Simulated scan of single mutants.
Amino acid sequence: MDMKLKEFVAQHPGMSIASQEDNESILNFFENLPMKGQGLQLSYHRSPDFFTFLSLQSNQFYVFIYREQNQILAVGSLSLRPAYINGAEQALGYLGDLRVRPQLSSTRAWRDFYNDLMQSSNQIDELSQVHYFVTAMIDSNLIAKKALVGQSRLSFQYNEISKYKMINLLGRYKTCKLHEGYSVSRTQVLDSKETIDFLNITHAQLQLGYTAGEWSRRSKFTNAEYVIVKKNSKIVGFTQLWSPSPFKKIIIEAIPLSLKVIGQILLSPRSRFRVKEEFKVLYLNAITVAAELSLDDQHYVFNLLCHQSWKSSKMKNYHCLAFADFEQHSFSDALKGFISNSTPMSLYQVVLRREAEEFKIEQTHPVCFDISLV
């Protein structure tokens, strides 16, 4: 028998769906339980409203919280959106914002809830059409990987869709010449039928590609700029320059010595980042390159998108450009003229063991996944 999500959550003691009234408590919880990795140490700030960033991820999202004695001990979110998966339009759930205070009771309560949620999702009204769930993890976050990936006692499993790198372009030492037949344009509005047709056709062939409805939603993002590359008057490349700041701010907590040296020697004063200040990142979102191009031409178009984005007037307000580079369809090795660093990450499908083959996200398609919204 189907039930409402609120009814399902109420069956788990201490669990609830967060509302705006919980905003301050959630922000305090995140402030006191930062996510740690290696290398450049960053913290993520969502004040003054934790929920605003989630509304950028999706029009439909839920935040789950676990309390003991009126104190939050665990938080996780679920955002839903349409996406192309294995060539067809499907409902996709993104599992994010997971923070659990490391103590036995909260760890066990969250594990049991998460396990039941995955098992019962097809019986919950709001999730009954969602057969695909994904999440992302930093590879250096060994605690999270140990707690979640490879846990055979759970009813679900984590299947790696792809390894990827978060690439930060910190400085530029060489330009990229415009080859004959190529042109570049910029626009603040995504309303060209030619561009929208290119995106709809191309993204239908990507894993997690954006649907027409998602493009319509994203076209309303404020302060976005679109960079479009044409070859012989035909669109062959696209990216959306956009940042979620101030709704999600990245604060630098510690800088490794190697990056300090790079910053002092190679980066301009504008590009240098400092401890306890915001690390301002402008993201290349929805990087889209025409599949019919030769590999060399694809690499050139990608380089052109990066270099033209670096030349944007928006860059004067940011430390770097960033994008996700996926292992199966990597462009970063062909990138020329930039000083960069990278963070290894992995994208996983979260799927019930009994449905792992029926609802498998195949690794035969390039992946579309924007790190600006995770």
Rank of each mutant, 00 (worst) to 15 (best):
N122E: 14
I17A: 01
G209C: 08
F302E: 03
H329K: 07
A322D: 05
E21Y: 09
Q308F: 11
I265F: 03
H307E: 05
L199V: 04
L304T: 05
N122L: 14
A322I: 05
I371P: 07
Q123Y: 05
E253D: 15
K146N: 13
R354Q: 13
P34A: 13
P366K: 01
Q363P: 07
L199R: 03
S43L: 08
G150Y: 03
D2N: 13
A74I: 04
L293A: 10
F302S: 03
L352W: 01
R218T: 04
A91K: 06
I161W: 03
R172F: 05
N285Y: 02
K146L: 15
K314D: 13
A322N: 01
I339A: 12
L56W: 00
L321T: 08
V130R: 01
L78Y: 02
E214N: 12
Y44F: 15
G209W: 00
L154N: 12
A204H: 03
D22Y: 05
F302A: 08
D116N: 15
I85E: 05
S219K: 15
Q38W: 04
D191F: 00
K4F: 11
A10D: 07
K260D: 06
S185A: 09
K145N: 09
I228W: 02
T343H: 06
F113A: 07
T195I: 13
V63H: 08
L241G: 00
D139N: 09
L5R: 04
V100K: 01
Y348H: 01
F338G: 01
I196C: 08
L92H: 00
K260G: 09
R218K: 15
E355H: 08
I228N: 02
L347R: 03
W215Y: 09
R108D: 13
T211S: 13
Q308C: 13
F64T: 07
Y66H: 15
S16H: 01
A91L: 08
R108L: 15
T135S: 11
R108W: 01
Q349P: 06
W110F: 13
N223M: 10
H319K: 14
S243Q: 06
S152T: 10
L304Y: 00
Q298Y: 05
G171A: 14
D49E: 15
L266T: 00
V227G: 07
K311M: 11
N285F: 04
S140D: 15
V63M: 10
L98G: 00
N317P: 08
D125P: 03
F247Q: 12
T195D: 12
A147M: 06
S268H: 00
R67I: 07
S258P: 00
S243L: 04
S185P: 01
S43R: 10
